[in-house]
Design a protein around this nucleic acid. Structure first.
Length: 174
DNA sequence: GTCAATTCTTTGT
DNA sequence: ACAAAGAATTGAC
């Protein structure tokens, strides 16, 4: 439903710089704000508008982002990540995202584990919602979060991606 | 296999 | 502002 932009505090402002990232799997879309990488979309999610005036800072971030995305697509763990602008989410979501970003390569967590990590055991469902609201998939390894019995849950960019990325890391799921 | 419980976000009145 | 329904789950019968 194409409504309108929310009236939340610190919502995404106009003026995001969007740049495409070419990978072996397609072209990702990176959106940068004044604070850092604000959003990352899967190929096919949207078309890249012309990015003419790109600040030097954003170019530097984009270089890091490109390398990180390529690493993840190749099944590696990115050594460095650009600054992430997570001001679009609530405190709880930011907490969840931080936990996700701490997941080590080849390791998987369950929604319940993440819930406990943020101090709210039993909030597995809420964690799932927070993951779905994750604006930066791949870089924030939300694909490494599975359900309780290592069952594949859902994924914003499509389950195909989640399964593919997990398979790249030698992680088997039902 | 099916049902109930728990927490956070979003939308409508 | 308040209230109700939904969601990428979990655990028990």
């Amino acid at each position: 439903m194409a409504k309108k932009l929310p009236t939340k505090t610190g919502a995404i402002k106009d003026g995001l710089t969007c740049i495409g990232i070419a990978t072996t799997e397609g072209q990702f879309a990176a959106y940068y704000s004044e604070h850092g990488l604000a959003r990352l979309d899967f190929p096919g999610a949207g078309e890249i508008s012309g990015s003419k005036n790109v600040p030097a800072v954003v170019q530097a971030w984009h270089a890091i982002t490109t390398r990180a995305v390529k690493d993840v697509v190749a099944g590696k763990v990115p050594a460095k990540l650009p600054p992430l602008d997570l001001s679009t989410g609530t405190v709880f979501q930011q907490k969840v995202w931080k936990v996700l970003s701490e997941i080590k390569g080849g390791c998987t967590l369950s929604y319940g584990e993440v819930a406990e990590a943020v101090g709210k055991p039993g909030a597995a469902r809420a964690v799932g919602r927070a993951c779905g609201a994750n604006p930066i998939p791949v870089l924030i390894p939300c694909h490494r979060v599975l359900a309780a019995n290592r069952i594949l849950g859902g994924f914003s960019g499509g389950l195909e991606w989640k399964r593919k990325l997990l398979s790249r890391e030698n992680i088997s799921v039902q």
